[in-house]
């Protein structure tokens, strides 16, 4: 009888010790199970498709069977689309655990702009999220149909000055990079255009191709693929892009539209994730994004990649927050 209960106590102690040991080891050996990455857009969209490419190496092993990044644990994409990303990100900050096993993909300026325009409805902002690394940057470009009478930004601006609110400009949605770019263009050129939000980048592109809208802001990657049927007038970035070396930036044309609308995509974690875990991710994830195979696939897919480390992204988030808060201060909703 006695020996039985002692054995029980012993095994209990062993179990407790074992458990606490495991807990200690969990940080040391993070990650020891697959990591999910929430993508707030539907499967097949640009964000989803790039997220799948850049995370594809995390589960890989090298020739000797040794894990390359993140202990060979795969990153699994989970799509939670809805309302321009608000559904996925809201659920993420409300329901995910800050343990480093639930990450999310971010789109800047989308989520920052949403947190500014809808301060009540939107539960996320740059203060409750931790950037890990950035994989890509897709600048917005101003496009018109091949048959359009506009041959330059100046043509469009002149027409818009003569006909206020007549120029229709399509874009992927409200308060996404395309919308910001249009707001900036209006402000910088002193014109009034009519922004038509559509269900996504491809749909917005279709509006321009089909002549439904006079012009459009779209992702460089999508416009690049359809360049035979479009005129790409200008790019909303600080420098020209390697994919489209002949397209001038707005700044070159004397219109003060900077890179605030560039669509940055990357991976973030929740605030409160243990520091060692963040360190592991901040260390390994950018290296993974720079993997030869990842870069090659991104290049093939026409997706401009721009790998940024955690520190760089932190800085970029802060700058965007300050700029967008100023630009969008007249657009605040639900307050």
């Amino acid at each position: 009888m006695m020996s039985k209960s002692r054995a029980l106590t012993k095994s209990l102690v062993a179990a407790v010790v074992g458990l606490s040991f495991c807990a200690g080891a969990a940080i040391a050996e993070y990650p020891d199970r697959p990591i999910t990455v929430v993508v707030s857009y539907g499967a097949g969209g640009a964000t989803d498709f790039q997220a799948r490419i850049v995370t594809m190496m995390s589960g890989m092993e090298d020739k000797d069977g040794k894990p390359v990044y993140l202990n060979g644990q795969p990153m699994v994409i989970v799509n939670r689309p809805g309302a321009g990303g608000q559904v996925g990100w809201n659920k993420y900050v409300e329901q995910a655990k800050p343990d480093g096993y639930e990450l999310a993909a971010y789109n800047v300026p989308h989520f920052i702009a949403q947190s500014i325009v809808f301060p009540k409805k939107v539960k996320y902002n740059i203060d409750n999220l931790e950037p890990i690394a950035n994989w890509g940057a897709d600048p917005a470009v101003l496009i018109v149909n091949k048959d359009s009478p506009f041959n330059s930004v100046q043509d469009l601006v002149d027409y818009a000055k003569a006909n206020p609110e007549k120029v229709t400009v399509s874009g992927a949605g409200l308060y996404v990079g395309h919308h910001i770019a249009d707001l900036q263009l209006d402000k910088a050129a002193g014109i009034k255009t009519k922004y038509v939000p559509s269900g996504g980048g491809v749909k917005a592109l279709q509006f321009v191709l089909g002549g439904q809208t006079m012009a459009g802001f779209n992702n460089l990657s999508d416009a690049y693929r359809s360049r035979d049927r479009l005129k790409i007038l200008a790019i909303a970035d600080l420098e020209r892009n390697e994919f489209l070396p002949d397209v001038p930036t707005f700044k070159e044309l004397g219109i003060d539209v900077d890179d605030s609308s560039v669509n940055f995509r990357g991976i973030m974690a929740l605030k409160g994730t243990p520091e060692p875990v963040i360190q592991v991710l901040a260390d390994k994830v950018p290296a993974m994004f720079k993997d030869k195979k990842v870069v090659a696939k991104m290049q093939e897919g026409g997706s401009p990649s721009r790998v940024m480390t955690r520190e760089q992204v932190q800085k970029m988030w802060k700058e965007r927050q300050a700029y967008l808060a100023d630009l969008l201060k007249d657009l605040r909703k639900d307050e």
Binding site: A43, G44, G45, F49, R52, I53, E300, G301, G302
Partner: peptide, 10 residues
């Protein structure tokens, strides 16, 4: 739309 992703990846 999803198939488009499949094309681009290749």
């Amino acid at each position: 739309a999803v198939l488009l992703g499949g094309l681009l990846i290749n």
